[in-house]
Design a protein around this nucleic acid. Structure first.
Lengths: 206, 206
DNA sequence: ACGTTAGCTATACGGATGTATAGTAAGCGC
DNA sequence: GCGCTTACTATACATCCGTATAGCTAACGT
């Protein structure tokens, strides 16, 4: 997993061409064609072939040969698949799992962090302080059940509200508990578990 | 920023084609050509044109017209540029900013979260508990100075060690403070500030 | 009945595109 | 001198590829 990039040093011209390829992918979503590179640097197509071949030999790019726009950044390949998770609002109309189509935004994050998660919730309020703060993003794995002590996303059928709380399972009772002692436990309102919180992102650490 | 995706509902066939496009981009790094889609579903190229036109009309994909492989997932476009930050080990040989070339791994995350950060550190130890826990990833913005109360990455010239602590500026003294009261403040060893911690990621919330 | 949408075929055009052949020129190490 | 690398031109070629023309069937709503 912690594979070192072993890209041999590039010449100035090779670096400029590599940067252009990277920038084009970033900007347009598509790698450039050989001719687009040739046009950009005002050189012949054949010269670009040589440059790209050099970049491939040095391990900076990978080729999808004989395919249009088949120049790929090597670092993009071995860094694992990026996962895009939908960020749901804190007050979805229905059950969050059904509201994914109306996602507010998407979070892109490495697979190893997000692999167990299905969606992301932006948390409002301080009921889980200090573990979870207002504005935090929590990665949620969809689940119908959870163990005692796990932090879960719960859905109240009554009013359609969604909340993040710690699940408590006692001999006879199952209830939700806030970490912040200012909030009382919730035991009366019927709820169902939507998922368990696996990871946390605090965008603004104060 | 929180632009709602207004993607109209897709038919079954359209969804299957959309999924194929997404999967190809994920797997090969390149969007498929019209002919590749046609081959996959054993239909004519013209039929694919109609399907892709429908996907574009419904807002699911964007087109780079008249360009090879010019089918782009709409959600990838408006979600901002993805930023790749180097993850540095917790015990870099020199100053972390100089150790970026030996990055262990890379973290891909949305621009709005990472925009102010230059690199990522994996934190070891519990000196900043409960704000920062063992194994957390902190996003760091390179800086030579910081204000009182900010969480900073400090570098001890003496032994080359790097640590994450809260910066304290008193009338005459500048020192580092752990949040965990079990750790005493550090005031003697000379240090320099490498950067300030802007965001936090807790991969495994227990 | 009529228009609209979904879904499809067969075929064609022209430019885009990767690849290749055959060179030229300059610099470096041995 | 020789081999190697870097960097480049001009030109050619087959096929890839987006686009387009001209149709077709079926389902649904008004």
């Amino acid at each position: 997993m912690y594979s070192k990039r072993m890209t041999l040093p590039l010449t100035h011209k090779q670096q400029r061409i590599y940067d252009f390829i990277e920038e084009q992918i970033e900007r347009t979503g598509l790698p450039p064609t050989f001719r687009e590179i040739a046009l950009r640097f005002a050189i012949s197509v054949r010269a670009v072939q040589d440059h790209v071949a050099a970049l491939e030999k040095k391990g900076s790019v990978k080729r999808a040969k004989e395919r249009a726009r088949g120049i790929l950044i090597a670092a993009h390949q071995n860094s694992g698949v990026k996962v895009r998770l939908p960020i749901l609002g804190s007050v979805p109309a229905g059950r969050p799992v059904e509201a994914i189509a109306q996602a507010e935004d998407f979070l892109s994050i490495n697979e190893d962090i997000a692999k167990r998660a299905n969606f992301v919730l932006r948390v409002k309020g301080d009921s889980m302080f200090p573990k979870i703060e207002d504005g935090d993003l929590v990665l949620v794995r969809s689940a119908q059940t959870a163990e005692d002590g796990e932090i879960v996303v719960a859905y109240f059928q009554e009013d359609g509200e969604v909340t993040v709380k710690k699940l408590r399972k006692r001999s006879r009772r199952v209830y939700l508990e806030a970490i912040n002692p200012a909030y009382p436990p919730i035991g009366e309102k019927p709820f169902s578990i939507v998922g368990t919180v696996t990871s946390l992102i605090r965008p603004d650490l104060s």
